[in-house]
Every structure is written in structure tokens, then in C-alpha cells.
Amino acid sequence: MASVTGLEGIVAAETELSMVDGEKGLLIYRGYEAKRLALELSYEEAAYLLWYGQLPTEEQLVDFCVKWSGLRALPAEVKAVIDLLPQEFEMMSVLRTAISAAEETNRGTWSPSLEGALRYTALVPSIIAYRYRRSAGLEPVEPNPQLGHVANYLFMLTGEVPLPAHVKALTAYFILAMEHGMNASTFAGRVVLSTQSDMASALCAAIGAMKGPLHGGAPSEVVHMLDAIATKERAEGWLRQRLDEGQRLMGFGHRVYKTFDPRAEALREMIIRLSADDAWFELAVYVESLATRLLDEYKPGRKLYTNVEFYAAAVLRAVNMPSALFTPTFTVSRMVGWTAHLLEQAGCNRIFRPQSIYIGAMPETAEV
């Protein structure tokens, strides 16, 4: 039996949720191109599509949003747990612990529900905002039921109603990041749920995988890169030195996409619409164009194009998101995709049990 390191190319499940076509640069959510959804829909509409399999009517959307906003308030016991955690805990560790504390204990037979998916998705921004403000010595801001999911997240972080342009840009990012096939965190969650464990445990596994810098940490590195470049005049020299040293350019290339990342294309279009005169974004666009040309020069045939993390960094910087919250914010967006996968797993469950190949020593008496 041949081994496949990292399970690359191995089919682990069938799904109706999304399709990632790396060769053609396609990301499909239930029959719709994700980049079009990101430019045209609210986050709630896209979430409804993934959870229910269809876009909502106007009446359904109103009822759905009311139900969603009613689930945002943090229970007192969850706040108490968060307050007990050491200040040095990273936000992802806080989030993992708080989700455990928020676990529904009065469940009967094993059956993860859409109501649970909505509840956990509604709670995650509140957990992050509560911890962030408490750690900064600020009074926590309670959820605003008049604001949508994305706008309310920014409101709870800052205490101010966000600019419409910022909400639109962050909404586009959230929709594009909400689901992406059988990635590491989604797989981790499905594996845990396949044992008939509860949704909270599966989400904690997904959060643990997202915490790893190879999965959820790239936007921060893009910001560091752009900050180091600082100006157009410094760009080529900085990039060439990095490439001469054999270093990676953050925000370029993707394990799946072998052409333009459709998520990056949509974010680029959204940012141009909203902030074409923004100096920092202008630098990002310039660096993207220059870096793509240099990568083709240094690594011909590799097809290393801009990925979603590059423009995600531009969006997160535009809304003044602290870099320490980049991965937690990615997690806010991905909750819908994770929970949709958990519900799908429950609907046709079989426990995951891959094989391994032993390559260690054998006792002398053993027959091979």
C-alpha cells in the first residue's frame, strides 16, 4: 500500500456545499460562484445558502436575521470563564475554551442541529470582542440587534457604528472565507463529529487547526511584508532581495489554486470600488503586480498568483483590525462553513479511520 503524505488528492467525503477547482480558478457555493456572492449578498444571505441549500426570500431573510441577532449575547457563565483565563492566552485559545464553556449540556441523542450551528456562529464574534475589550481595559460593548453580523462585530470591537464601506469590504471577505472545501480545520471538525461527539467539540478541533500558522496566520505576514516595503520606490529592491535569499513572498501561491485565486479577484474588485484613492491599498495593488512579474522571472512556470490572504490583509488593515485578531476574524467568517460541514457529516456519518504504514524497526523474530 502506497502512502500519501498529508492525504493530498485523497477523497474523504462527498459534499454539496462547495467545489474548489484550482486549475480553473473556481470556488462554487451550492451552485453559485463565491466571488459573485461576495460582491452582491449580505453575509446572512450567503450563510442561509450554505445552511439551507437555497437563497432566502425577503421574508425568510428578515426572520432569519432576527433569530440570529437574538443569539449573540454571551451567557454570564461564559463571561466568567473568559475572565479567569490568563492574559497571555492567545485569542484562539480563549475562543476554543469559551466554545467549550458554551456547550449545550441538555442535549438528548446525538444529532447536531442547525439551531446549534446558528448559536455558535452568533456567539463567536461576541466572545472575541468581549475578551479584546476586557484585555485592553475597556468596557465590553453589548451586541446591537439593529446591525448585521459583520457590522455588529466591528461595533462590539470599537463601540462605534462602522462605516458602510468598511462593512461592505469586510462582508466580501467574510463570504469568500466562509467555506473552502476539505481544508485542515474543516477536516478536523468532521473527524471529531464522525465519532458522534458534539458540535462544540468538533468546533474546538477546527479552531485548534485554524490556530496553526500554516492555516490561519497568513494575512498577518502579508501586513508585515507591506509594512516593511512601505513605499513603491522600495518595493522592487525588497522583493528581489527576498527572492534572492530563497524566501517566500507571503500572499502569493496556493496549494490548490494554480491560476488566479477567485477570492483574491473579488476582494480586489471590492476594494477598488470602495477605496480607489487609498494610499495603502494603492501600494498593495502595486506590490501585487510587481511581485507577480518577479515570481514569473524567478520561478518560471510555477504560476504563483495572488491568493486571498494578500487582499484579506488589505481589507483587515482598512477596517483597522488589530493584527492579533486576524486569525480570530478569519474564524468568525469560517464558522458557517464549519457548521455546514458538521451538519452534512451527521447526515451521512461514517467514522473516519485512515490507515498508516509502519516504517519502524521490527523484532528479529517477527515474520515479514
Rank of each mutant, 00 (worst) to 15 (best):
Y132C: 08
K258G: 06
L214A: 06
Q247M: 07
E221N: 11
H224L: 13
M182G: 12
M156L: 06
A218R: 01
H254K: 04
Y257V: 10
A169S: 03
P262W: 11
M199W: 07
M156W: 00
H166C: 07
I175F: 12
I128D: 02
A202E: 11
A266I: 06
N144Q: 02
Q196G: 14
A136F: 08
R263S: 01
I207M: 10
I128L: 07
S126F: 02
L243Q: 06
I207H: 05
A205Y: 01
L154Y: 00
V256R: 00
F260C: 12
R255C: 11
R133I: 02
L214C: 11
S201E: 01
H166A: 05
A184I: 01
E265H: 07
E160L: 14
V223W: 15
A209Y: 03
G237C: 03
R134H: 08
L193M: 09
G148P: 00
A200V: 10
G237L: 13
G246P: 11
L170R: 02
R242A: 15
G217E: 10
I128Q: 09
E233G: 09
G212N: 03
G251H: 11
A200E: 10
G217S: 08
L226S: 08
P145N: 10
A205P: 00
V223G: 03
L176P: 10
A228C: 03
Y257W: 04
A235E: 08
P143W: 10
D227F: 00
E233S: 09
H149N: 12
A129R: 05
G148E: 14
G212A: 07
A266R: 13
A188K: 02
R190Q: 11
P262I: 09
H215W: 04
Q247T: 00
L170Y: 05
D261N: 07
R133P: 12
R131Y: 04
V141F: 13
Q146N: 14
A209W: 00
P164A: 00
L157K: 04
A200Q: 04
L203T: 06
R255T: 09
L226I: 14
I128S: 04
